[in-house]
Nucleic acid binder design. Structure first.
Lengths: 242, 242
DNA sequence: CAATTTTCATTTGTCAGACATTTAAAAGTC
DNA sequence: GACTTTTAAATGTCTGACAAATGAAAATTG
């Protein structure tokens, strides 16, 4: 691991990159302890605060964890699916909010990905996944449910559908797409009338998944996508009119 | 923005979270300048190195950028699709390498997502996308191409297919899935014989995309997926036998 | 001897202050 | 007015120090 003292980049960025590369390359393996901050600062010939800035960069990406004390230090962290979910959601959310992505584009991406999971989920879902979907549908029918709670339940429903595919890599990929859409979805579910229709469409999806009917699940998702687009257009039109 | 000095977490982690929340919530908007490090250290009642550690955490996630000089400082960064690609690829790569994900699982996820793009790409691809696909196929036929170069060309081919859908959100999601698979794909493409077959299958995909044939593209992708699985099983068997 | 307590060295977390470097604006000069 | 110099502000980096956590070794105790 070496750095170029003449580079224009920050030393801490270079050091972080050097360690990151070592982890990706496999020179540093999971749970391996990195040299202490003092040793690293000597190795790279920089001060301890600079090393610390580099380590914090890596910690922000969940690549390392630190522990205080005699046997403490920085350890290569096993990147869990849960960690990755969180980063994926944060990144996707900011990506959508900062880049003027049209509702149509985001919606298309989300349903395209979800439809990729549906056939697998129809084949492999277990009783738990189905029960979660039904429970969330039931929650959605409750009077007096706030828009936020309705949307959270919506996310949970789709999450169960995706998890039903039994493929953690797919679940990870979808987490960002589904959760990042929540703020946008919030806009279009605030009338009682649209809720009823959405719940019906959710029911159709659950029915198809229960019947282990891949084509039916796909068709039901397309229905939901079309209705979502329709609602969004209504909201846009109403907003433009007002 | 406030922090809890009694929390068990690092101060720099808390400060980073507070600023991150402010960005997500919209209290800090794109290109807005954060207070200087000196002002932040006064606001949070911590030292400047601690503030800097917090800022480096945010920089690692591309949430801020810093600039030196009189009018410099830390600015809220517009998270570009390109930035997000990079993070997505790094995260996906490490996720696969650190979590004993089976080849079958990773492969299934990758092709499920790619098949979600194929119909859209068949409808919307332009001449450039098609030309890139053809060029990469041609590159793959060249004698003496290293395994690494072949895989890179493979990635570029699939990237063009995905980009043909014209949906940057989809492209972003797929970037991780396709690129993270590259090391795994490396294993199974090192015989000249498999290259020929892969190139044929790539040709079939390109033909379907050129003909704007969604179903044909889907079928061709399924063929490629099946062949990929078959090759992987051969490699496993050979490795077990040896 | 076994169990418990204490001590201690190691490591990260935090702080204070200083200097170097970069940058753009302000002041000065022709 | 155009160019040069100065200056102030900000980040980048360093030094040195102390606090706090933590596990292991040493000392103590029954």
């Amino acid at each position: 691991m070496k750095i170029d003292p003449n580079s224009s980049k920050d030393l801490s960025a270079q050091i972080a990159q050097a360690i990151r590369d070592a982890i990706i390359k496999g020179d540093l393996i999971v749970d391996e302890r990195l040299p202490s901050e003092a040793e690293l600062s000597e190795h790279f010939d920089v001060s301890r605060p600079t090393v610390r800035e580099a380590l914090k960069r890596l910690a922000a990406q969940s690549l390392i964890r630190t522990q205080r004390g005699a046997t403490g230090g920085a350890f290569v962290n096993r990147l869990t699916f849960e960690d990755a979910y969180g980063q994926q959601i944060t990144t996707s959310t900011l990506l959508l909010s900062m880049n003027a992505v049209s509702f149509a584009t985001a919606c298309e991406a989300r349903y395209a990905l979800e439809r990729a999971c549906a056939p697998l989920s129809a084949r492999r879902r277990n009783a738990d996944h189905l029960a979660t979907m039904r429970a969330e549908i039931h929650r959605q029918t409750q009077e007096g449910l706030s828009d936020e709670a309705f949307c959270a339940s919506d996310v949970a429903f789709h999450r169960a559908l995706v998890d039903g595919a039994g493929n953690p890599v797919l679940s990870y990929q979808l987490a960002g797409a589904v959760e990042a859409m929540q703020p946008l979805m919030n806009m279009i579910t605030f009338t009682a009338r649209s809720r009823v229709r959405i719940i019906t469409l959710h029911g159709n999806i659950a029915d198809a998944i229960e019947a282990r009917d891949p084509k039916g699940a796909d068709a039901a998702l397309i229905d939901l996508e079309n209705y979502t687009i329709e609602l969004a257009q209504d909201v846009m039109a109403r907003r433009a009119g007002a």
